[in-house]
Design a protein around this nucleic acid. Sequence first.
DNA 1: ATTTAATTTGCACGCGCGTGCAAAAAATTC
DNA 2: GAATTTTTTGCACGCGCGTGCAAATTAAAT
Lengths: 345, 345
Amino acid sequence: MAKDDSADGEVRAPAFVNAKMVAERAGVSRSAVSRTFTDGASVSKATRRKVLEAAEALGYHVNHLARRLNERSNIVCLIVSDMTTPIRAGMVDALTRRLQAAKKITVVINTQSDTDSVSSALRQTLHYRADSTVVLSGTPAPSLIEMALANGQQVILINRDEALPGCEHLSVDNAMAAREAVYLLRRAGCSNLGLVTSTANTASLIAREQIFVATAAAAACQVNVIAAGPTGYEAGGEAARRLFGRSNGPDGVFCTTDLLALGFMDTARREFGLRIPDDLSIIGFDDIEQAGWQSYRLTTFAQPLEAMAAEVAARLTGRQVTAPRQAIFEPVPVWRKSVRPCVMT
Amino acid sequence: MAKDDSADGEVRAPAFVNAKMVAERAGVSRSAVSRTFTDGASVSKATRRKVLEAAEALGYHVNHLARRLNERSNIVCLIVSDMTTPIRAGMVDALTRRLQAAKKITVVINTQSDTDSVSSALRQTLHYRADSTVVLSGTPAPSLIEMALANGQQVILINRDEALPGCEHLSVDNAMAAREAVYLLRRAGCSNLGLVTSTANTASLIAREQIFVATAAAAACQVNVIAAGPTGYEAGGEAARRLFGRSNGPDGVFCTTDLLALGFMDTARREFGLRIPDDLSIIGFDDIEQAGWQSYRLTTFAQPLEAMAAEVAARLTGRQVTAPRQAIFEPVPVWRKSVRPCVMT
DNA sequence: ATTTAATTTGCACGCGCGTGCAAAAAATTC
DNA sequence: GAATTTTTTGCACGCGCGTGCAAATTAAAT
């Protein structure tokens, strides 16, 4: 009959230690405990020490969930798809590091699965009162973003050029890269250009394509545009098959993504016996790690991931009031060996 | 002076809608609202409808942070390093999807940065009352894990063979793969074996190495072991340089990681003119996407990521009571072109 | 129409915590 | 040593929510 108040059967996991328990052990009031862990609160040296000792002994951690039930939660919701893609993995890596350093809690929502589960997940972050959302996904349902905005979240879009009102935009200067690509290929002596992209109609990809085509046109240069599937290695290979399957294949190609470029290179070489850069110059975009591998040595444009991630962290830590709604980062050209060296005249 | 469109006068973001506001609008008590969003609670059809309408109109989301301040939070803490590595990216991808489907909230902690920030981050998840921790990181400080355990969290370790008491372990059968690798190479006619690994002393890598060496020894077969740096493409290349720099290089190599294998292949081919698989057979481990690229066509062992992630999700959704503390998954051999076909006698 | 059973509703309390307020203690001044 | 100021402490309240309990309403059974 000895009814034990605390965890009688030991069935339950040991509950979290709370401030009251610490207070009892330290022989002070619960408020004293609370104040010890609150910056700028008034506690005497002695009490503070007693509290810290008791907390240490008991393994106490302040419950942030209960801290201020209605104030900012410091939770950031990161919406991302195609996480296995090297460039995305790099972004997630950089962001999680920077946000962590900024004392934020990063909740990841993977939009790979069906939209149903995604909207359910976003709803979850609302349930958990995330106070900001960072979108990396290529195609997040606009309604999801509206929901986030409607709930007062700060929303930052990365590499999405559509001007969604209320959001902040960070992106790479696609136009600059596309123009530079035309220039590089022309300088390498290419006369028949190709543009390889994917069927995924993301704003970034479209921008790279359109500016490239327009710039080439301005230089009186013909461009073959190919989109042969979802962004990735496979689609690059398929594009090569289509481009070189007919006569008069290009001698200079800009791929809107490194992954496309690598697939393109592989089948251009293996299935059509082309030498790079002798017969064919190729330029990519992203500068994923694989682009530097010996089999590829791809000339490409690097996205300044660290700088972008740092900017996100900065905007999320309060001082975003005066920051312009949009920030554009310069891609940095990475010269490797996939473009024929300029023939000096 | 035209002041900006949206929410300018109000400096503060619109506060979250709470149950009380919904109750007022619906003309019912706050309890009724609460019950509407609680499974199995008793509410009449009519009230329920009124509440749902009001909630919809106001954009209400239950505040899970306040739900049961002392019960399970459904927050999972995912500790991971080397996130840009394809295999890790794949794991994170699979896990986030499965956990999401299981209605969990995934908080990512990136242990890439200094240990200081890591332990601070883990402490954060304690602050946020995560009720479980999944460890992917190669080298998480044991003290971190102890802290998690001490706070009653369920801890699942992936591909870490050390028997930490109180943790659950999921891992791939490294021994099986290593034995199979010896067998495959022998069958391909290789007589001089090599094992390429990294200087990162993770349990998985050590297991693959030791079993490979032991199995080869049992077959009276000599093995050169090389560890030339941190796990990655570069270290693979460096290993090739060391192995083939001296005379009597191996004709069959097992790399403990695909990334090592790919780097190894590239420099073996380019710097030493070796043909694969004619002069040299190579086997990797992980089956990252790049292993299937045309430049490599690497024979390797795939980690059953989906199965493992599903198991994690299952263990985290309650029924783990009877589950054995450890589960071992069979790697599935992926036959490609980097091992010389068996010469029929 | 009454009695009884079943269902719904509102009130009040507590979860863990931060904080305003006033009492208590300590430090400073006269 | 007394009066004053400064600091520290405890009490009590509220944050948004779930839930036990009893009152109120409805449905079912006489």
